Amino acid sequence: MNDLKFSDDEGDGYGFSETIPEQFIVTEKELDQELYEQFIDEQEWIDPQPNYADLIRQGEQLSGNTMPISEKKRILVQLSCRGTAEAYRLLQEYCTRPDSALAEWSRIALYECRMRLESDLLDEPVGLISTGLGGDGERLRYIFVLVFQGESSEEGQQREIREGLDKVCLEHRSVVEQAQFRPPCLYVQVLVPMDVAVGEVIEESLGRLNQQKEEFLPDYLVTNVSVPTDEEIQSFLDEL
């Protein structure tokens, strides 16, 4: 589903389609970009679409061992183009136990079908967002690292810090998935809605955690691309 289009008018440069999505689906894990582009190419070459009843019957046979991988690959693309509840159910079933060669391909098919299904239900375009750390369907996953001013907190203070993080996140419809004390750092993994700035969540957390005592430095590391390595965290600390 291409929600971003280019202008054909000379001199106008790039232009957006008139229906830029306001609703988005966030993938749980990052999609393979190259494979995703191949999938979209396959969608565009499907012409004509097979009879719907025949396609559903073929979809019901995806989990069998007799159908060639190339045939399954084609059927997954065709089901994704339908965007019906029945097609989505078949894709969901296959995604739970896919052929290893089609694990990522089937995941892309499921998201593409879901976009079409939700677009029809909402009567408006729905887009897809995929980042390195993924999300939970509606929120993006981030990791941020806070740095203690001095000695890291004792167990009782750690509970207070976690409670403070939870309260701030609750106010922003966000969720703390992990909060790990790794002296001299606090390593936090959160889910944040797309309409909320992650920087706002972090800075409000710092403000709350530093109310009683200057517990943390104002500088922090944040990413939604990949899990930061020990070397990357150390490099950040060295620059403070």
Rank of each mutant, 00 (worst) to 15 (best):
M1E: 10
L4Y: 13
K5M: 11
S7E: 15
D8R: 13
E10N: 10
E10H: 12
D12S: 15
T19H: 12
E22M: 06
E22A: 02
Q23N: 11
V26T: 03
V26Q: 01
T27G: 05
E28T: 08
K29T: 15
E30C: 04
Q33P: 00
F39N: 02
I40C: 05
I40Y: 06
I40T: 08
E44V: 04
W45K: 12
I46N: 06
I46L: 10
R57N: 12
R57A: 14
L62A: 03
L62Y: 02
I69S: 10
I69D: 00
K73L: 06
Q78W: 01
L79T: 02
G83Q: 06
T84R: 09
T84I: 07
Y88S: 08
L90D: 00
Q92T: 09
Y94M: 00
D99Y: 05
S100Q: 07
R107W: 02
E112N: 03
C113W: 00
C113M: 00
R114I: 01
D123Q: 12
I129W: 00
T131A: 04
D136C: 09
E138G: 03
L140K: 07
Y142V: 08
Q149G: 13
G150F: 09
E151A: 13
S152L: 11
S153C: 12
E154V: 10
G156A: 15
R162Q: 15
E163K: 14
G164P: 09
D166K: 14
H172M: 10
E177H: 09
F181A: 08
P184L: 09
P184I: 08
C185T: 15
L186K: 06
V188R: 08
Q189V: 14
M194H: 09
V196L: 08
A197Q: 11
A197K: 11
I202H: 02
I202P: 04
L209S: 01
Q212K: 11
E214T: 11
V222E: 07
N224K: 10
I233D: 07
I233A: 12
E239R: 14
